[in-house]
Nucleic acid binder design. Structure first.
Lengths: 215, 215
DNA sequence: GCGTAAATTGAACGATCAATCAAATGACCG
DNA sequence: CGGTCATTTGATTGATCGTTCAATTTACGC
């Protein structure tokens, strides 16, 4: 059992930038603060990153790598039920927000609204993070395919779930009150319950058309 | 018919700040830009506003005043149906985002994620804007009370609708593609359809318990 | 131990930041 | 016209912004 390597300068800088961007936002975080918090010098930072935007890209790539190990993996460990996974995932975000005194919220969502219009490379990575998140949830939903109505668009549903997470966190964070997020999750749960009821009716009816089918 | 008064210096500054905060965000907007765009001098700005934060507060108060005349009123003109109003409102946000080439998004939501943690006064106004928005939608839903299941929490539902709007806009804006928002709205519509079907069943059953009731 | 490249140091740069203030001008009242 | 207060001017402040770079130290193959 060897002692873990001390984190490299590059990693310390990246981790400080990640944390500060999350705590304060991109524009509100100065390079000097990142240097102080990572015990690095400006020359070292600019040795590894061309400029502040490249640092942001590095942070977003880090989040991309982290998505499954840190976010999706634990949920998949908790249960094999695709639908239950969705609500464990949302509950994890909920608990994380409340445990941090309603500060910070979703780092990707924050950056999406702050920098998406101006930083093309960052925007691409933000979009990719959203896509990976939704694709993972989509796979969960596919595993519960037979418990949902035949006509339900599961890709759109995974987007909808991300919508509920981001919109709920935005309101709960602003209000410093978890209620808006809990209420949003509760309505998503009610929606799933109705869909499952409908799917059960479909199964007994053997392919009869469904009440919510708007085609 | 008299010619309208030319806007006062204070109004020009406020309008420039509002637009620039919306286009670029709060931290990314410099005082000097606001001065240039409003053709004012720094002394004039600081005569009316103590500092940049007070200017932000002024902008948020302006949004508060604007909510009903500019956002809710037109929807209420379009139809008297409480449920249909919800989807016209969402469609208006959707069309606004698409017509601006997926830039900017909801100004309140942007500020919520950028400044909510640090600026107490701004946070209060952001919360109030969300509350007013949800309260207005809540009133619409109450007017359709008998078409929704008895047990449905309409206050929570109005929060849920705001969640769908903000979360959908976030994704659509980042992706520069309206699809994630349309998909989210479509699922909200499917949810409402199921609720209305359930409510109709309740009415014929005269108070029987409902499938989605999770008490 | 030597040579070379990578990594690190930290002072310094020009630009821009939010904010100040004494002086000038404008509006309104008696 | 004189007096008074609100408004506007714009040069200027010190701080902080992101960034540069020549010099120095460290790491590593031969």
């Amino acid at each position: 059992m060897t002692a873990p390597d001390p984190p490299s300068s590059r990693d310390r800088i990246l981790e400080a930038a990640r944390r500060l961007f999350h705590e304060q936002g991109f524009h509100a975080t100065g390079i000097s603060t990142i240097l102080r918090e990572s015990s690095a010098n400006s020359g070292t930072l600019y040795h590894y990153f061309d400029n502040k935007d490249a640092l942001l890209v590095g942070v977003l790539e880090y989040y991309t790598r982290l998505l499954h190990p840190a976010v999706m993996g634990p949920v998949e460990q908790a249960t094999g039920d695709g639908i239950e996974r969705v609500f464990i995932l949302l509950q994890n975000y909920r608990d994380g927000l409340a445990s941090l005194d309603f500060r910070m919220g979703c780092p990707i969502g924050n950056l999406a609204l702050e920098v998406a219009d101006d930083h093309a490379a960052a925007r691409d990575l933000i979009v990719r993070n959203f896509e990976n998140w939704a694709a993972n949830v989509h796979a969960w939903l596919e595993s519960a395919r037979d418990r949902l109505p035949f006509s339900t668009d599961l890709a759109a549903m995974s987007r909808f779930i991300l919508t509920v997470m981001e919109g709920g966190m935005m309101q709960a964070r602003a209000a410093r009150d978890i209620a808006p997020m809990d209420q949003s999750i509760a309505h998503l749960r009610a929606y799933f319950d109705l869909l499952q009821t409908q799917a059960a009716a479909e199964r007994t009816a053997r392919g009869g058309n469904s009440p919510g089918d708007r085609s």
